[in-house]
Design a protein around this nucleic acid. Structure first.
Length: 420
RNA sequence: GUGGGCGUAGCUCAGCUGGUAGAGCACUGGAUUGUGGCUCCAGUGGUCGCGGGUUCAAAUCCCGUCGCUCACCCCA
């Protein structure tokens, strides 16, 4: 039986990997401009970290975690998301302190046991950002602005930024009770899913896609009518900051994030052409999470984006330019040329050129075909005559012009882009 | 966990109500003794996912199984 890859995981192959590298490099460059540093945490942690951080009653913790016992009997879990690990590391490494701000980001694989579908995998990659140590609305706005700048660098279009606020932890809890109270009389009319949501996460009823639930939800008390003065002010300032830098957005007061730790600002970025899973980024504020893990009260803002989804909406004109292109392809005819070609290739590479060749010693025609397929700018042709004279044919693959050059001269010609 | 669709050449797929497998692309060679892309010609390549059943005969019909895929749930 042939061994195949595990369901829901993917190989990233040449042809695609260039896009991944470009996205990662763009993230490094862009985030650095905003003062963020990369952090790398382990890919697995104590199961308790995720159970407490994400919320015991969430789908992720209840049924989607890759959890197993290691040889000592400890329960460990492959990380299903990044925030809990960063918070753990933040506390463990005492990155906090009066007036201190930690601006961190991570890039790496996450694991959730779900049924795969378009844009959803069991091992998937996230780029996540966590800004820890300030409760100011400018922080929310700056992080979102950075995200949108990142998308601009990637040339993405057709994105929608949706904002909402859940209020502080206190108002969120209070609203939850008000909402449950209001839902109670409609309970028999709700869909089966929503009946279950009623106890576990009543806010989710608000964004149910079932039509009858939607109608009921439209008449339920809205979050925005149950905010504190400070919540309202915070949300308004986030909006004002975004507007001040020309960032468009829409308010979606049904936008409810599933993870327990969110409060105040939440947001999501959706893209066109992704299928049912159309969110490329989600995040928000999590002011209570550090305390939850017995760290000092530290207001934070963060978000995560799925790289697979991001890469599948990259514009074609940008990704085309990423295809690797050798400067030269060596066409070597005969054993003497084969031997000489090895040294020539090395000499050219040490001069900074990217050089390919064929190793199978096929006919000129077949080697030229391979040269053409490699998309090289020049072909260097070496047969008996060239080895004897020490001068090689240099052929420009676009114009088909060619001329005779010594090793040094052909390297210079290629580097300088001079006519052959 | 639930539901729909699909598994035929390396890739994308065709194969009508059962008669024993095909196209395009790719690959190799030739037309062009040492010069690619375009064109033309020829060739290599398949236990039709796997197992069982019906039948004189199964890629085709039936059952099972595995896999892929899309959607629900949920999320990035």
């Amino acid at each position: 039986m042939k061994i195949k890859r595990i369901r829901g995981v993917n190989d990233i192959l040449p042809g695609d990997i260039e896009k991944w590298q470009w996205v990662e490099q763009t993230a490094h460059r862009t985030f650095a401009r905003y003062g963020f540093s990369e952090i790398r945490t382990p890919i697995f942690e104590s199961t308790r970290l995720f159970a407490r951080g994400i919320g015991e009653a969430t789908d992720i913790v209840e049924k989607e975690m890759y959890t197993f016992q290691d040889k000592s009997g400890d329960s460990v879990t492959l990380r299903p998301e990044g925030t809990a690990s960063v918070v753990r590391s933040f506390i463990e490494n005492k990155m906090y302190g009066p007036g201190q701000l930690s601006k961190l980001y991570y890039i790496g694989p996450m694991f959730r046991y779900e049924r795969p579908q378009a844009g959803r995998f069991r091992q998937f990659y996230q780029i996540g950002v966590e800004a820890m140590g300030s409760g100011q609305p400018a922080l929310d706005a700056e992080a979102i602005a950075m995200l949108m700048e990142f998308y601009r660098e990637l040339g993405l279009t057709g994105l929608t930024l949706q904002l909402n606020t859940l209020g502080s932890a206190n108002s969120r809890a209070r609203y939850r009770e008000i909402l449950k109270e209001a839902i109670r009389e409609h309970l028999p009319d709700l869909c089966e899913n929503c009946k279950a949501r009623y106890e576990r996460n009543p806010l989710r009823v608000l964004d149910c896609k079932v039509e009858t639930c939607g109608e009921i939800a439209a008449h339920l008390p809205a979050i925005r009518d149950n905010l504190d003065e400070e919540d309202r002010d915070h949300f308004q300032q986030v909006q004002d900051y975004l507007k001040s830098v020309g960032q468009d957005f829409m308010i979606n007061d049904r936008l409810v994030r599933g993870l327990d730790y969110y409060c105040r600002t939440t947001f999501e970025v959706t893209a066109e052409g992704l299928g049912a899973q159309n969110a490329v980024c989600g995040g928000g504020r999590y002011d209570g999470l550090v305390e939850e893990f017995e760290g000092p009260a530290t207001p934070c803002f963060g978000f995560a984006m799925g790289m697979e989804r991001l890469i599948s909406v990259l514009p074609q004109d940008k990704t085309q330019a990423l295809e690797p292109r050798p400067d030269a392809f060596l066409v070597l005819l005969g054993e003497d040329a084969g031997r000489a070609g090895f040294g020539l290739a090395e000499q050219m590479r040490r001069a900074g050129l990217s050089v390919s060749r064929d190793f199978e010693g096929g006919s000129m025609k077949s080697q030229m075909r391979k040269a053409n397929k490699s998309n090289c700018r020049y072909a260097v042709i070496a047969g008996e005559d060239e080895i004897k004279s020490g001068k090689f044919q240099l052929k420009n693959m676009e114009t088909s012009e060619q001329g005779l050059h010594t090793k040094e001269a052909l390297i210079e010609t290629i580097i300088g882009g001079k006519p052959v």
